Amino acid sequence: MKKVLLIPAFLFALALMMVSFGDTSYAAAKEGSFKTKILDIQVEIPYEKSSVNLERESTSDSETIKVYDKETGKLLKESTVEKANKKAMSLQGDVTTQGTSLYTVSESRVDNGLTSTLNAVLELYDSGSFRQINAVDNMYWTTSSGNHDLVNKQASDVATDGSYPTTEVQISGAATIEVEIDQGASAGFEAAGFSVSASTSTTYTARKNIEEGFTYSTYNRD
């Protein structure tokens, strides 16, 4: 199991409580959450089922669910599961473990048109009706839909059963968005929660601290 950054347990627990999806806090939304299946993995949707619409996009080895607010049509959350073409390797690294595959799971958010994604690579064991998550092999942030950078990137994982292997894992991460803008765009970025400061006489830098967190499991525990 790899960790991008080790943080004290009490700080990690606090971070999980404060992670936000759109305008709804993770802790508050979790009370009305529900689970849905993406490929071979259950993902927790932290909203009341009656308040959102789900849109699915699928290929042979990946599936994405977009969660929209039913009243406003706003995109609240985007979850993707992609199965790797190769099997996971054993701890010795010289043979393929039968029934074990790698899955990349990711959650994306959009801030003023800038997309930031927290990714995790799960090692999943599958034998008949039995499934478990053996380990989280990697966690990392990526960007798209914009010319922004992510700095101060952090990510951590917790097996909700207490240790690996587990049937449920929570991934949490934080980062800071940085993007260079001109003065005319500063008002829009400030309205979206960014702080804006002058870089030169003609350019400005917009920054925003973001957090993301999600739960994936091999079974629907609800």
Score class of each variant (00 low, 15 high):
132 Q>N: 07
91 L>S: 15
127 S>M: 15
184 G>V: 02
26 Y>M: 13
93 G>W: 05
177 I>D: 05
117 T>C: 01
42 Q>H: 04
54 L>H: 09
176 T>V: 12
215 T>A: 04
218 T>C: 10
143 T>E: 07
133 I>R: 06
7 I>V: 12
3 K>Q: 09
48 E>Y: 09
137 D>W: 07
92 Q>N: 14
159 A>Q: 14
98 Q>W: 09
75 L>R: 01
182 D>N: 13
62 S>H: 04
124 L>E: 04
180 E>Q: 13
129 S>M: 08
90 S>N: 14
156 S>Y: 12
85 N>F: 08
150 L>N: 07
98 Q>M: 11
158 V>Q: 10
5 L>I: 10
9 A>H: 04
3 K>P: 13
126 D>G: 09
45 I>M: 06
71 E>C: 00
88 A>K: 02
212 E>M: 11
38 I>Y: 01
208 K>L: 00
19 V>Q: 02
40 D>I: 03
144 S>W: 01
76 L>S: 03
166 T>S: 10
45 I>P: 04
106 S>T: 02
191 A>F: 01
20 S>D: 11
205 T>S: 06
71 E>F: 04
196 V>I: 03
166 T>I: 01
37 K>R: 14
194 F>W: 12
40 D>Q: 11
212 E>L: 11
91 L>C: 08
155 A>G: 09
165 P>D: 00
115 T>G: 03
20 S>A: 14
179 V>H: 01
91 L>D: 15
161 D>F: 08
194 F>Y: 15
222 D>C: 02
60 S>T: 04
205 T>L: 12
27 A>W: 00
108 S>Y: 04
76 L>T: 01
148 H>G: 00
168 E>R: 08
154 Q>A: 04
24 T>G: 07
14 L>G: 12
98 Q>V: 08
36 T>S: 06
